[in-house]
Design a binder for these strands. Structure first.
Length: 554
RNA sequence: GGCCCGUUGGUCAAGAGGUUAAGACACGGCCCUUUCACGGCUGUAACGCGGGUUCGAUUCCCGCACGGGUCACCA
C-alpha cells in the first residue's frame, strides 16, 4: 500500500489538491426537479458541422425543457486539431442559429459559470489530481511501453484472433514497483498512466440510453490510457471527470461513442461518480450517388456538411433550426401546423422521441420548411434579412436594395400578408432572381412572349393598352378594364369560353394579360400583375411597353 | 474479423400482436384562376429476407442479408 502512495507522489509531486477539494469546489447544482444539465463539447476546429449543430440543438433543447443548463465545453486535449479563433467561431456559429450558451466558453478567453474552467487544456491539474488518487488506490499505474512494443502486441493479437489492446497478461506494467518506476523515470523514460481495469472478460454491462433504449455490451477489460505522456488526459478520462464535476446530468453525443460507453461507465464507477444518462444521437446521412446507398454526411465530400454552406445560400437560421427540429422530433411538424405563429422554442422537445436511425439530409424538405418560414415574414423582415445576407454575399443586390429602401420593401410587399401567402423565396439567394425585373441593372430584358399570338397582334394589344392604362385605377377595376379591351379586340373574356369555341376568338383574356405581363417583366409567370405595375410606376411601365413594341416590330 | 447500433413508400416518419398501415416533403391528376404561386380535393407508392411463437405477426423470438459505427497516447 505504501508502494502506491509513493508511486502517486513520484508521478505527481506537484499535485496537492485532492478529489475532495474539487468535490467541494464544484458542489451539486441547485436546480428545479427534473432540470437537466447538458453540454456541447466540440474540438476547437472552427468548423461547425451540420451534425454538430444538430447535437448542440438537441443538448440545448433538452436543457431548456426543464429549466436546466446548457454548457459549451471545449475539448482541446489534442493540440494538433486546434485552429485559431476556433472557439469564438463556434460560439458565433451557434448564436447565429439561436443557440445561446448558458454556461461555458464564450470566446478564446472568456467564459461564464462557476463550474469552469470550461476548456480542457486548463484543467490539467484537476485531471491529474484524480489520476493521482487512482494511483494511490492502486487503480492506475504508469506504463512505459513504447509504441513499437504496443504495435507488436497488437500484431500478435490480431494473428491469434484475440481482442486487441493492453489488458490482462499484455499489461506488462501492471503492478510495476515503485523502485522500477522511479529508476525508469530518472532514466528519462516516457510513460502514460493507464487504468488498471477491474473488468472481467465475460462480464456484461447494460445501460438505458435515452434515445436508443437499453444497450447491453461486454464490460471493458482494457487498461485504457488516462493520461498521455504529456500529462494531458484522453477524451475518455476528461469526459468522466468533467461531466462529473460540471454536474452534467445528460450526455448527448454522436452514436459513434456507443462503443466506448463501457469504458466511460467503468471510469465513472472506479472514480466513485454517478454516471450521467446517455443519449446517443444517430448521425445525419447523405445519399451517396456513387454507391446508390446512404452514408454519413462527410465534411470532405459534402459542401452541405458545413453549416456555413447554408448561410451562404441564404437559408434563414431559423429555417435550418426548424428543419433540424423536424428531424429530431417527428411530432414537431404536427405541432407547427397547429401553432403556425408560435416560436419554435415553445415546442416541447423530448429525447425519447428522437429517431434511432440516422436521417437522410433532405434539401427539398429544407426548402419547403424555409419557404414556409419566409412566407410568414413581413415585407419589412424580408427586406432586413435579405439585405443583411446580400451585404455579405451579393453586394450588387445589397446596393440596389438599400439604395431605395421603400421601393425594395414595396417589391417584397407584393401579395405578402395575404391569408394564402406566396412561397417564391426559399433562401435569400433566390431574391436576386425574384426581384430582377424591378431593377434595370439586374434585368436582362429578354422578353419571353407566348408563341400563340403573332407579333402584330401583340403590338396591337400593347398599343391599345397604353391608351387605357392608368396607375390610378383601383385593384378591383384594373382587370375588368383589361377584359373589356380584350373583348373589343376579339378575344374571349374567359379562357373557358375560348376552349369551348376556339374558332370564334383570336385567343382569350389570359393571352392578352400575358402580353402585358411579358412586356413589363419579360416573363410568362409572375406574381400579381396589378401590383407589379403599381410598384414599377407609370413612367417605367410606359417605357417598357414602348421598348417591347420596338422589339416586336423587328 | 470481434463488439455494438439500425432497417415501415423516393425522403422524413407515426404506429400497434388483429388498422382500409397516419401525416409531412417530393411526384401525378383535378378544381380554383388572366400567368405563376397559394389553397382545396385526389392519386401512385412502404413494413429487408428466412424460420419460429401464435387462431393471427409488419409488431415478439432466432437466424441471415444489407447499411452504419467502433476497435489510438483523436475526439
Amino acid at each position: 500500500m505504501d508502494d502506491t502512495l509513493n508511486m502517486a507522489e513520484l508521478l505527481f509531486p506537484n499535485i496537492t489538491k485532492t478529489p475532495e477539494d474539487y468535490e467541494k469546489q464544484y458542489p451539486e447544482r441547485d436546480l428545479p426537479e427534473g432540470a437537466k444539465v447538458t453540454r456541447f463539447a466540440p474540438s476547437p476546429t472552427g468548423f461547425l458541422h451540420m451534425g454538430s449543430l444538430f447535437a448542440a440543438l438537441v443538448a440545448k433543447r433538452t436543457a431548456m425543457a426543464g429549466g436546466g443548463v446548457f454548457m459549451l465545453r471545449i475539448e482541446d486535449t489534442d493540440k494538433k486539431r486546434e485552429v485559431e479563433n476556433g472557439v469564438t467561431g463556434m460560439v458565433e456559429g451557434l448564436r447565429n442559429f439561436g443557440i445561446d450558451i448558458d454556461e461555458g466558453m464564450l470566446s478564446e478567453t472568456e467564459s461564464k459559470g462557476s463550474y469552469g474552467p470550461y476548456i480542457q487544456s486548463e484543467r490539467t491539474p484537476i485531471y491529474q489530481a484524480y489520476v493521482k488518487d487512482l494511483v494511490k488506490k492502486g487503480l492506475a499505474y504508469p506504463c512505459f511501453m513504447t509504441e513499437e512494443e504496443i504495435s507488436d502486441i497488437r500484431a500478435g493479437q490480431e494473428r491469434d484472433k484475440k481482442l486487441p489492446g493492453i489488458y490482462g497478461e499484455y499489461a506488462k506494467y501492471r503492478g510495476i514497483s515503485y523502485d522500477e518506476a522511479k529508476k525508469r523515470i530518472e532514466n528519462g523514460e516516457e510513460y502514460v498512466v493507464r487504468l488498471l481495469s477491474p473488468g472481467k472478460e465475460d462480464n456484461r454491462i447494460a445501460f438505458d440510453d435515452s434515445i436508443k433504449g437499453r444497450i447491453e455490451m461486454p464490460e471493458n477489460i482494457l487498461d485504457v490510457v488516462l493520461l498521455k505522456k504529456d500529462g494531458t488526459p484522453t477524451y475518455h478520462f476528461a469526459h468522466a471527470v468533467d461531466d462529473h464535476l460540471m454536474r452534467t446530468t445528460d450526455v448527448t453525443r454522436g452514436d459513434e461513442w456507443i462503443s466506448s460507453a463501457p469504458i466511460h461507465l467503468q471510469l465513472f464507477d472506479v472514480l466513485g461518480f454517478e454516471a450521467p444518462r446517455y443519449g446517443h444521437i444517430a448521425p445525419m446521412q447523405k445519399e451517396d450517388s456513387e454507391t446508390g446507398g446512404k452514408r454519413k454526411l462527410s465534411k470532405r465530400k459534402d459542401p452541405e456538411a458545413a453549416v456555413d454552406y447554408f448561410r451562404e445560400c441564404g437559408y434563414p437560421a431559423e429555417a435550418v433550426i426548424e428543419y433540424l427540429l423536424t428531424i429530431a422530433n417527428s411530432n414537431y411538424e404536427e405541432w407547427r401546423i397547429e401553432n403556425p405563429d408560435a416560436d419554435n422554442t415553445e415546442f416541447e422537445f423530448s429525447l425519447s422521441k428522437m429517431s434511432k436511425a440516422g436521417a437522410l439530409f433532405d434539401l427539398a424538405k429544407l426548402n419547403d420548411v424555409s419557404k414556409n418560414y419566409i412566407c410568414r415574414l413581413s415585407a419589412e423582415e424580408v427586406y432586413d434579412l435579405s439585405a443583411e445576407w446580400a451585404k455579405e454575399y451579393n453586394t450588387r443586390l445589397y446596393e440596389l436594395l438599400t439604395d431605395d429602401e421603400e421601393y425594395a420593401k414595396s417589391i417584397f410587399s407584393i401579395e405578402r400578408g395575404n391569408e394564402k401567402p406566396r412561397k417564391d423565396i426559399g433562401k435569400w439567394e433566390d431574391v436576386e432572381n425574384y426581384v430582377s425585373y424591378f431593377y434595370n441593372e439586374l434585368w436582362d430584358k429578354k422578353l419571353d412572349f407566348a408563341d400563340n399570338l403573332s407579333n402584330e397582334d401583340m403590338i396591337e394589344i400593347l398599343e391599345q393598352y397604353k391608351e387605357i392604362y392608368s396607375e390610378n385605377d383601383p385593384a378591383e377595376e384594373w382587370f375588368p378594364k383589361v377584359r373589356e379591351m380584350a373583348v373589343a379586340l376579339g378575344y374571349a373574356k374567359a379562357p373557358k369560353l375560348f376552349k369551348k369555341n376556339p374558332e370564334a376568338y383570336r385567343g382569350h383574356v389570359g393571352d392578352v394579360a400575358g402580353v402585358i405581363r411579358a412586356a413589363v417583366t419579360g416573363r410568362r409567370n409572375t406574381p400579381d400583375l396589378y401590383e407589379i405595375l403599381q410598384t414599377l410606376g407609370t413612367d417605367e411601365v410606359m417605357r417598357r411597353f414602348d421598348s417591347a413594341i420596338v422589339s416586336l416590330s423587328k
